[in-house]
Amino acid sequence: MDTGNRTFSPIVELRRYTLHPGQRETLITLFDREFIETQEAVGIDVIGQFRDLEAPDQFVWLRGFPDLEARTDSLRAFYGGPVWQAHRGAANATMIDSDDVLLLRPAHPGSGFRLSRDRPAPGGEAGGIIVATTWHLRPEAEGGFPEVFKTVLAPMLRDAGVPVLASFVSEHGENGFPALPVREDAHVFVWFSRFPDRRAFERHAAVPEALQPRLARPPEVALLSPTARSRLRG
């Protein structure tokens, strides 16, 4: 079995769904059964899917694409295909809102996810937590911020024992599949880390003081518990 790692993906969607109360497990069961291999069959990397530990009616997931053109082609193939058509009613019935979507690209070469090619089989368990931190930048700070993160903030985080799994910035290219909106006004820097538990995260939760002048508003921090079949795991 090939367990080597490779980098996922030059274009990434960070998708956050608000669900009807009590419907998260229903959607996770459906998603893990029907919507992983069938998306990957049309060229989509399903990177990870998660329960938000602080929002019981939130489902968060990540998927990736080789480029914007491939994204358009793959989304047309999947959402026009038989599996989504067969199960979209059940999936949509769990959701209040599915439009909170950030379109992202790696902040610098090599800053995407590096994950095993192998996906966990159904029925397993996933431990640990993934922390997704979204920094909302002032527009004038966006262009130079990846270098600031790479040379100043990332070393500070590593010295504090915080692993940086991947980092991304807003992708401002055209959304070629407008049936699925993205947050086109976003100016964000999103980075991901991994912790064994909530206590370990809380020891490192402070926002670096040097970052404050670059932020347009307070950061969003999501503590994410991987589903059993998530490729990105804690």
Rank of each mutant, 00 (worst) to 15 (best):
G110W: 03
A154Q: 11
L14Q: 05
V182C: 02
Y79A: 07
F31N: 10
E54W: 02
T133R: 15
G143E: 12
P120Q: 04
D2L: 12
I44A: 00
V101D: 06
P218I: 07
T227R: 03
R138W: 00
D97S: 10
E25V: 07
G4K: 08
D97P: 09
G81P: 11
D67S: 04
A93N: 10
F113R: 09
L103C: 09
R117A: 05
A200P: 12
F192I: 14
F168Y: 11
E54P: 04
S116E: 09
G173A: 08
E142R: 03
D185F: 01
L157D: 13
N5P: 13
P181A: 11
L157N: 13
P178H: 00
S225K: 10
S74Q: 00
D197E: 07
R33I: 05
R229A: 06
N92W: 11
D99I: 05
R105H: 07
F201Q: 00
R114S: 12
S9Q: 07
G123N: 09
V42D: 07
F50D: 09
V182S: 02
P10C: 05
T133S: 14
A86Q: 15
R51G: 02
L232G: 03
A210M: 15
P146V: 08
A93V: 10
R33T: 14
P120K: 02
W84A: 00
A132N: 04
E140P: 06
R194I: 03
T134W: 04
T29V: 11
R88A: 13
A107S: 12
M95S: 08
S230Y: 03
S230P: 03
V182G: 03
R6Y: 12
R71C: 00
A41V: 07
E202C: 09
E184H: 06
E209T: 15
Q39L: 10
R203N: 08
W135Y: 10
E142C: 04
F177L: 14
L232H: 01
A216H: 09
V60W: 01
V83F: 01
R117W: 12
R183H: 06
S9N: 05
V12T: 11
D97V: 11
R231M: 13
H172D: 13
D197L: 04
E147C: 02
F189Q: 00
P163D: 09
E34T: 07
R233G: 08
A70I: 03
E25N: 13
A90I: 08
T227Y: 02
D159R: 14
G143T: 14
A121N: 11
H108V: 11
S170I: 06
A86I: 05
E220L: 10
F8D: 14
W84Q: 03
V169R: 08
L102Y: 12
G144A: 01
A121P: 13
G161I: 05
T7M: 14
D32M: 02
A86P: 15
A205P: 06
V221G: 00
H108G: 14
V152E: 09
F113V: 08
T38Y: 05
L215I: 01
G124P: 03
T38G: 01
D118L: 12
D73M: 07
V182F: 05
I96S: 06
A90Q: 08
S111Q: 08
M95A: 08
Q39D: 04
E13H: 10
P155S: 01
